Amino acid sequence: MSDKSLILTHEQIIQKTRRIAFEIYEHNFLEKEVILVGIYDEGYNFAKMLKTELKDIAPFETKLVGLKLDKAAPTQSEILLECSDSELKNKAIILIDDVSNTGKTMAYSLKPFLNIKVKKIETAVLV
């Protein structure tokens, strides 16, 4: 019996993760460091997978940072980054989540970066 909630198989997740890692490398090949910001919980887990893949293919350093917010009430919750603002200044940021339906979580997750002079912000979403 098949699981109707299954979107991707394990093999497909690995394949897509590797392809996204190559795209991150292609967009950031001149960078010395890229900051991977994973939205808890599953976005952070996906960010860890991307960090592992990038370690194998990219010469730049990657730093993994978690971002916490209440996805059910993002306008009413505090958004917490697991690093200081100075660690993000003038850096390439990749904001990562596992699923995007409406884009609302991604949009609210950008809030902490609005007052930091980052070099650029890109997004990576598995599904």
Rank of each mutant, 00 (worst) to 15 (best):
Y40A: 11
L81N: 07
I93M: 09
H27T: 04
L80H: 05
A73E: 12
L69C: 05
N115E: 13
T123L: 03
V127R: 13
M49Y: 14
F22Q: 14
L81I: 14
L8C: 01
S84F: 14
I96W: 07
L8A: 02
G66C: 06
I121A: 03
D97V: 02
D56S: 11
S2P: 01
K55R: 14
S2K: 15
T75Q: 10
N101E: 13
E61Y: 11
I35A: 04
L95S: 08
G38F: 00
E122V: 00
K63F: 09
L126Y: 10
E23G: 02
K51P: 00
G38K: 00
E87A: 11
E42M: 06
K104E: 10
T17M: 03
I7M: 04
E53V: 09
R19N: 08
E23P: 00
Y25P: 02
S100G: 05
T9A: 08
L126H: 04
T102L: 07
E53T: 06
I20Y: 02
S5G: 01
D56G: 03
S5K: 14
D98T: 13
L50E: 00
F22S: 12
I96E: 07
V34Y: 01
T62M: 01
K120C: 10
F22R: 14
T9H: 07
A72K: 12
K104W: 01
V118E: 15
A72E: 12
F60M: 09
R18G: 02
F22A: 12
R18E: 12
K16F: 05
E122K: 14
K48V: 09
I7H: 05
S109Y: 01
I7D: 08
L80V: 09
K71H: 13
V37I: 15
Q76D: 06
K91G: 04
I79Y: 09
N28F: 00
S100K: 15
E122Q: 12
T123D: 02
D98A: 08
Q12T: 03
K71C: 15
S84T: 13
L88C: 11
D3E: 04
L88M: 14
K117S: 10
A58V: 05
K16M: 05
K71M: 13
N45C: 07
E26R: 05
K117G: 03
I14F: 03
L64M: 07
P59Q: 09
E82Y: 11
R19H: 05
I57L: 08
L110E: 04
T102G: 13
L114I: 06
R19V: 07
K111N: 13
K4G: 02
T9E: 08
L6W: 03
M1H: 13
I20C: 10
T17R: 08
Y40Q: 13
I121F: 04
K32M: 02
D56C: 05
D56F: 13
F60T: 06
P59D: 08
L126E: 12
L54F: 11
L69I: 15
E61L: 03
V125Y: 10
I20R: 00
K32E: 09
A73S: 10
T52R: 11
D85Y: 15
I24D: 05
Q12P: 06
K51L: 00
V65M: 09
S77N: 04
E42P: 00
L80R: 10
K111W: 01
E87P: 04
H27F: 14
L81V: 08
S2F: 14
A47K: 00
N45G: 05
V99Y: 05
Y108M: 07
